[in-house]
Simulated scan of single mutants.
Amino acid sequence: MANRTTRINPDPLDKIVTSLTGRDVESVRKRIEAMEHLLEGLIKIPGTNRKIGLDVILDVIPVGGDAIGALMGAWMVWEARNLGMSKSQMARMFGNVGIDFLLGIVPIVGAIPDYFFRSNTRNLKIIKRHLDKQHPASAIIDQR
């Protein structure tokens, strides 16, 4: 019986690892867009054109859930820092995360304003404007 060895092509695996850990603009953009989708657009509400994500879902957990959502939103600002965004842009983004945290601090009832004030989507728009201006080659056409 011949010993068959299956070789895995490392290129696709390298692409995945690079997009998760890479500091290049395209990798950062993909990570930020993925986080925004997770936090704001994970599940479509039946009968509507609106989506909710973990940010609203976590609001059912008193204080801790909203804190987790705020930390995940703050991570997006951290990634923006790695892109070289200005302090004023990052302050605005942290302000969005702070407002979102304060709106959602009341358990369950806080999910309602959190549903309408989508801080992560706002922050993604700020980041995309920066990237489109500073790194136009990394622009991706939205297919949503």
Rank of each mutant, 00 (worst) to 15 (best):
D142I: 07
K128F: 06
I108R: 08
L124T: 00
N96Q: 05
S119A: 07
S88T: 14
W78G: 06
I68Q: 10
L102E: 07
R23Y: 02
A139R: 15
S119H: 10
A2D: 13
I99V: 15
Q143N: 12
G84P: 09
M72V: 08
F94M: 15
R4I: 07
T5S: 03
D114H: 11
I45F: 12
G47D: 01
A2V: 08
F94I: 10
M90R: 12
G64A: 11
I57W: 06
M93N: 01
P10S: 03
R92W: 12
I99D: 03
V106W: 05
A137C: 06
L20E: 12
A137K: 15
R122D: 15
M72L: 13
I141F: 06
V25Y: 01
E26Q: 04
N123Q: 07
E36S: 07
K133E: 13
I8A: 06
I126H: 14
I126P: 07
F94R: 11
S138Q: 08
L124M: 14
D132S: 09
N49M: 10
K125S: 08
R4F: 08
I112S: 00
H37Y: 13
L20A: 05
T48D: 07
T121E: 14
G98T: 13
V106H: 02
K30L: 04
I68V: 12
N9V: 09
F117Y: 15
N123K: 02
I52T: 09
I45E: 06
V77A: 00
P107A: 04
M76K: 04
A67M: 08
V63Y: 13
I112L: 06
W78R: 04
L102F: 11
R81D: 05
A74R: 11
R29V: 02
L71T: 02
L71N: 03
A80I: 05
K128Q: 13
A34S: 07
Q89D: 08
V97G: 09
E40V: 09
T121S: 14
T5W: 07
D132T: 11
L38T: 11
M72K: 02
L131A: 05
K133M: 08
D114F: 02
S27K: 04
H37Q: 08
I126L: 15
I127C: 03
T48P: 12
N120C: 02
D142M: 09
A91L: 12
M72G: 13
V109K: 00
A67E: 01
Q143V: 10
E79Q: 08
R7G: 03
A70W: 11
L71P: 00
A67P: 01
T21A: 10
D24Q: 05
S119P: 04
I68L: 11
L124E: 08
I105T: 10
N96E: 03
A137Q: 15
P107K: 04
I126F: 11
I105F: 13
A139I: 13
I112A: 03
L13Q: 01
R144F: 10
V17G: 12
